[in-house]
């Protein structure tokens, strides 16, 4: 039973890997103080979601999943751009990029 599960890689295996990477990304967001590392955690989470979507698309032979993954990638790139611009602004003012500095943003 177990060996046959190990040998035949199915949807469940990919879903588990996706979930694991998602959790690691989530922990990165929760545990780290550096804004840029937090952004990296978000990228990891988005990537894990992409893996899930693409594996669903592969195992159900559906094209739409890949298009969804394509959109997710574009949005992730845009999000990283804006996040890094914000980090640069915060760094200019405080000479560090801890997440707690974002408390000082107002108005």
């Amino acid at each position: 039973m177990l060996s046959s599960m190990m040998m035949e890689v199915g949807l469940g295996h990919y879903l588990f890997v996706g979930a694991a990477i998602f959790i690691i990304g989530m922990l990165t967001v929760l545990m780290r103080k550096n804004v840029i590392v937090i952004l990296m955690g978000i990228e990891l989470m988005l990537n894990a979601v992409n893996l899930t979507i693409v594996s669903f698309s592969h195992f159900s032979n559906n094209v739409n999943g890949q298009i969804l993954a394509f959109f997710v990638m574009t949005i992730a790139a845009a999000e990283a751009g804006v996040g890094l611009a914000l980090a640069v602004t915060v760094f200019k003012k405080f000479k560090d990029v801890k997440i707690s500095f974002f408390e000082h943003l107002r108005g």
């Binding site: 990537n47 993954a69 574009t74």
Partner: peptide, 13 residues
């Protein structure tokens, strides 16, 4: 077998 997505992943990410 999602070759295009893989390639885009390489380029974009």
């Amino acid at each position: 077998e999602a070759y295009f997505i893989g390639g885009v992943q390489l380029i974009v990410y």
